[in-house]
Nucleic acid binder design. Structure first.
Lengths: 146, 146
DNA sequence: TATTGTTATACTCTATAACTATA
DNA sequence: TATAGTTATAGAGTATAACAATA
């Protein structure tokens, strides 16, 4: 970056722009962390929710990850084909299918999460621990407004 | 969102996830604000940099917006075709082209920025003014690490 | 009637490599 | 030898509409 640009820095008072650029950096780090595990950001996210004990339906996953329900279908298809998750019938609603991680899915997620955390740590180290915590609190309220 | 999910909230200690979801909300708001102005997020961002007085080259723009230089070519092509920006030769480097907004480009940007700001305000209102400022400071350091 | 998962399709965005002109 | 802009192409991500099964 030129010194002139450093001094001026357009758009840096624009939350949307800062959010987009910070997210781009974070995405690159996550992508790099997942590369060796045969996962992409979206399939990793779905797997992470399947590993969590929340017993989410595909519709829940779509809402949570801000994806279209039709996208979740092919993501779960892929994970299921690889033996990482299963579709279980919801006992209360026969339309819905709960996505649950298999033992292999849990193992892969654990290894992938470790790689991702390592990369993310480098991305976040420009903030100290308290600042990172404060950032997460603010982002949480933005990501999930009450 | 189910109450069970509200209670559990997987991934909410994951900065990358929160960043992605907050960015998705912000993007949707920006997109809605731009819809009536014939602009998309990426073309709007390039136009915003052209309106700024930083006299950025296409390469600068690519780096700043985290885009590939080849993507900037077609974005500038489109804006230029619509008379919103011009490519000016860089006096110091004949390879480089500086992207500058025309008067029409400035007008469109002003109108679009107003629409975007309105939508963004709704997205951000879950935080008070001081919190929004604090968030921008933290994001800036994440987006542009020294 | 509304919702869940599914299929299909078109469009946008992203990643990569090669080429040219200039440095 | 390296860099700025350009062209081309393939792959990933996104948006939308329609349908069957179930609520």
């Amino acid at each position: 970056m030129t010194s002139e640009l450093r001094a001026h820095m357009p758009l840096t008072d624009d939350t949307a722009f800062l959010l987009a650029r910070a997210n781009a950096r974070s995405l690159a780090a996550t992508h790099a962390g997942l590369a060796d595990h045969g996962l992409r950001v979206r399939s990793y996210s779905v797997l992470a929710l399947a590993v969590a004990e929340a017993r989410l339906s595909q519709r829940d996953i779509a809402e949570y990850l801000w994806l279209d329900p039709s996208q979740v279908v092919s993501l779960v298809d892929d994970l299921q084909r690889r033996g990482l998750v299963t579709r279980e019938p919801d006992e209360n609603d026969r339309r819905a299918k709960v996505v649950v991680a298999t033992e292999a899915g849990r193992r892969l997620h654990r290894d992938a999460a470790r790689s991702v955390a390592e990369r993310e740590r480098e991305t976040l180290e420009t903030l100290d621990a308290a600042e990172q915590q404060r950032l997460r609190e603010l982002l949480l309220r933005l990501a999930f407004p009450v």
